[in-house]
Nucleic acid binder design. Sequence first.
DNA 1: TACAATGCTGAAAACGTTTACCATCGCATG
DNA 2: CATGCGATGGTAAACGTTTTCAGCATTGTA
Lengths: 333, 333
Amino acid sequence: MPVTIKDVARRAGLSIASVSRALNGTGVVTETTRSRVLEAARELRYVPDETARSLIRRRSDTMGVLLPDLYGEYFSEILRSIDRAARQRGLHLLVSSSHGDAKEAARALRSMNGRVDGVLIMSPFSNCGELIEAISESIPAVLMNTPDDRGRWPGIQIDNYGGAYAMVEHLAAIGHRHIAHITGPLDNYEAAERLRGYHAAIRAAAANSNILHGDFSETSGYLAGRALLAARALPDAVFAASDMMAIGCLLAFREAGVEVPRQVAVAGFDDIPAARYITPPLTTVRTQATEIGARALEMLAQTVDDPAAMRVGCETLRTELVIRNSCGGEMKP
Amino acid sequence: MPVTIKDVARRAGLSIASVSRALNGTGVVTETTRSRVLEAARELRYVPDETARSLIRRRSDTMGVLLPDLYGEYFSEILRSIDRAARQRGLHLLVSSSHGDAKEAARALRSMNGRVDGVLIMSPFSNCGELIEAISESIPAVLMNTPDDRGRWPGIQIDNYGGAYAMVEHLAAIGHRHIAHITGPLDNYEAAERLRGYHAAIRAAAANSNILHGDFSETSGYLAGRALLAARALPDAVFAASDMMAIGCLLAFREAGVEVPRQVAVAGFDDIPAARYITPPLTTVRTQATEIGARALEMLAQTVDDPAAMRVGCETLRTELVIRNSCGGEMKP
DNA sequence: TACAATGCTGAAAACGTTTACCATCGCATG
DNA sequence: CATGCGATGGTAAACGTTTTCAGCATTGTA
């Protein structure tokens, strides 16, 4: 039996309308009325039911966040940046994660209906058309790193293609001719873009390629490293599609007594904190992970405030090469 | 003008009651009714308004999560474990973070009223009595690493005291006599507990102590390391109250050409991923951060399902010493 | 044929708010 | 003294559901 606005009204000897007005500061009430309401509310420890408020106001001041997972520093970084932006605007966050596939994400999306004013969606699966379809017309959405062929929703992406291209270009420029690539999971949009950038840069530099498949995890990077060690000759450089894989690969090399970067260069992607701490510190691609969430929330909040201002189409966030010691800097003979 | 249950009812030529029954599977409806409802709902792309459902069901299938911050691997690990447990139970999460103080947290708590079936609270501030007061009697809560003098709410804690004690004991056992400690922020409950454990173990081992103040951040650890270097003589060992500070300290030593663990041992607390990657790999205290969130949510969900079964009092999660290479193993002379 | 039992359905109340609209009151003005 | 008016507070509708309860139709039984 939680205390409701009626209880407060009874206690204050007023109508619920006056209580509402006094508490919200909307409408005019006399000073005596206000203080009577405030006192009654305090005495009863009244806290308004936000569900009921949301229902009638048709606003929940809450944004939904759909993430594929919460695992690892990458996602937590994104969630954190969303959170920061949300707090600044006084918004709440309803999070839902670990959607193995677009179907599950679509279900999560439905269950947010009415509870949120808008949704931030990150679903880098190639088969996420279904999810896109599920986005109700009536609820604003912003896509993050999520392919949207038909370009129907505003989106924001990391420049995975450009980042990978720049990295391979750099590796070639410092003299590496044989550059292997450890990919992310094949059905992942970001992994696919990085692979595409790798291919293009390899072609442009007329370098030699070699593809190994991974899944963004440290273990898969380690396994790829072992596979490279087992082959006849090591490449000049290994470019992993994620820092975690680069670290796994590094560990495999260290274990085998192969020196990095003297014998082989290793580069990653993401610039997670651990990239700085590993020995040798990892050359990698810094994505504006801290920006993407904040920016996406900003776009969403604006769309919610003024639906007419919604701009579909995709913003792309620049990446930045971070040169550390894992790739060597001197020209190879 | 979102489509409501009324629209579906009109389309199907039935009452809203029947639509509700058919859609939820509650109550009995004929097969023809059900299919007519299903078809109408599909045609109109009807999605129920969860706010209205929550209001009348008095259940939102959502839990609130109050965290002091989302920064760093520690909190993201906790949030992730909460999320995993929540998903398993089909629950949503309403998160709210970055509460500089208990007052702000209390405000966040109020704004969750009605929206959530229960709250998970983590507020390791010494002055969080105010927050505890703000917890409405009517909403179940579980405290994580949050002091509750009067023991009014169920809680779960990491054994910060025991973990610190065990670490210092270990350092003393392998021969370190002069053991410095870099503390966390002084108003933090966990930091205080770790300090308490340190003191007790120092006394028990009749070792020499030395206290430096930090704030859990890498930078503060680095500064503490510099301070130690500036002093006459280095201690035998430095025990930092967080891995991030241990890493910062390690970096300061590396920069100064001081060898770890040969000249000085360094230990941390938390066992974050980066602890494994740093050179030398960090001896640290592993907390069951992946457990605490999941366990807390489990307790909360049970309390929600059966308020009578609520058990106040605090569970404590064991910690585990993780011996790596940063502390040496051989007895000192 | 009348009546009880059974199976579905619909009308309406309820959840806790906000807010449009109306009534009242005190006061100044004619 | 009647009228008008601004200020304030109350009544009731509305938000979109779920659920109780009563009613209706159909069937089986006497």
